[in-house]
Nucleic acid binder design. Structure first.
Lengths: 248, 248
DNA sequence: AGTCTATATTATCGCTTGCTAAATAAACAA
DNA sequence: TTGTTTATTTAGCAAGCGATAATATAGACT
């Protein structure tokens, strides 16, 4: 990400590379393939997130300060570049430490959730990520399915077990049910839609994000104290009956 | 443009249905301008919601069973057609009765909310609406801003006052604050994201929508009983202090 | 029927777009 | 220096696209 900023700054050099002062980063001249590739990907993320994937390769190359055929030396087709953009954005911004954070019972659950959304929003609730995420979803569900499934398998079950613990209804033997996953999706969805309103619809947000996060988490947890035990009980009733039968 | 206006004006009793070759449904015959226009718009909604607004007019006309130049007899440009699609989708599916429903205290608030989401989801949480809504937001924020502002001004303040009533903290003099609006957005956002996962990402939803709605509303209201009075109190503290001074 | 008007089609223009081949020039090795 | 390599540019094709003018024809009216 720091690299993306750096690359963005080095756009639009004036002089057509004539000489190369030693020790100075030449703005436009020959770059090493790795460097150039990186620059193209970063530029493509910025460009496509702005105009969508129907944006033209000529305009992209113009913004990069290179000619359009050069793109095809590094990517065999526009589609190949697009898929590289997807991959970079989706796989590059997930932090596995978030799962550990969520599991860390030395911190009150409320604070864990607040801290998680602070970090998660800093990584993904940004215009480029959100726009590419939505463009991707509209052009084909596969990548978003993978992303959602990742969250649903890695993060949310932990989330659920911690909410169980918080509500005093720990059932280590009872696997996390779909109803529970869906239950915590509600909280997550509220945050996501805030980000969409802010960064995609560009609405003036009159309540700061972290303040909203705290309010939403407080309400979620206060409600969970009441409704989560009921939810677990209904699952026990439905799931434990056959299990009990098996036990006999 | 002139042609499309003119065509729209000559809105004859439509359905000329009398002149049909006996025993054979004429597939491609001349239609009245109103009929043809309607057909094009409906086809455009289906087509663009599927492939996005960069879809080609030739392919659209093919699906409609007409030739491509005919589109230009009814719409001066592709952009004009697109804007007509926006207008039809966004303005055509909002039901003002939802506001009255939300205000109807002869029904318990929980049931009002459930019923609202039953109706609202039937109208808007559908692939075509959601896709056009997202495509629109990505190509420019104006229309979505208008839609969100509509919800935010017409529906959510009512929503908030009913939640106040539910939580026993009615303050008719205290205008609905931004914090309260944002508070109820959380609930709404959770529903929206469910719809996106279902209809855009095409994920297998293992908890039925209305069941999720009930769980989410129950949790929202149970939490509100605890947190909403605190929220209102903090607003009173901030807003009523000057008012109290005035009272003296 | 025959006439006329507006609907619909055929043919095509001009521009854009993804992509490629050949030419150019910067870096490097001898 | 000279030669080799390869990053980069110049030039351009072929298909696709929005849009228009000219032409044909369905259907209403007398």
């Amino acid at each position: 990400m720091a690299t993306s900023r750096k690359a963005a700054l080095s756009e639009r050099p004036a002089a057509p590379a004539g000489r190369r002062p030693p020790g100075r980063t030449a703005p436009k001249a020959r770059l090493s393939p790795a460097e150039r590739e990186r620059q193209i990907i970063d530029g493509a993320i910025a460009y496509f997130s702005e105009v969508g994937f129907s944006g033209q390769t000529r305009e992209l190359s113009k913004r990069l300060g290179i000619t359009q055929p050069l793109l095809y030396r590094y990517f065999s087709s526009k589609q190949a570049l697009i898929e590289r953009v997807y991959q970079t954005v989706f796989e590059g911004r997930w932090n596995p430490a978030w799962v550990s954070l969520m599991r860390d019972r030395s911190i009150p659950l409320r604070e864990r959730l607040v801290e998680f959304y602070r970090q998660y929003s800093a990584a993904t609730y940004r215009p480029d990520w959100l726009r590419i995420y939505l463009y991707a979803g509209l052009s084909g569900p596969v990548l978003n399915q993978r992303y959602i499934n990742h969250i649903q398998r890695e993060l949310l079950p932990v989330y659920c077990r911690e909410v169980r613990h918080y509500c005093g209804v720990e059932s280590p033997d009872l696997p996390v049910a779909e109803e529970e996953i869906e239950f915590v999706w509600s909280l997550h969805g509220g945050m996501f839609y805030y980000a969409v309103r802010q960064h995609i619809y560009l609405l003036p947000m009159r309540v700061e994000f972290m303040r909203k996060v705290e309010t939403a988490i407080d309400n979620f947890l206060a409600g969970a104290r009441v409704t989560y035990p009921r939810l677990i009980a209904s699952l026990h009733g439905a799931a434990a009956a056959p299990a009990a039968r098996r036990r006999r």
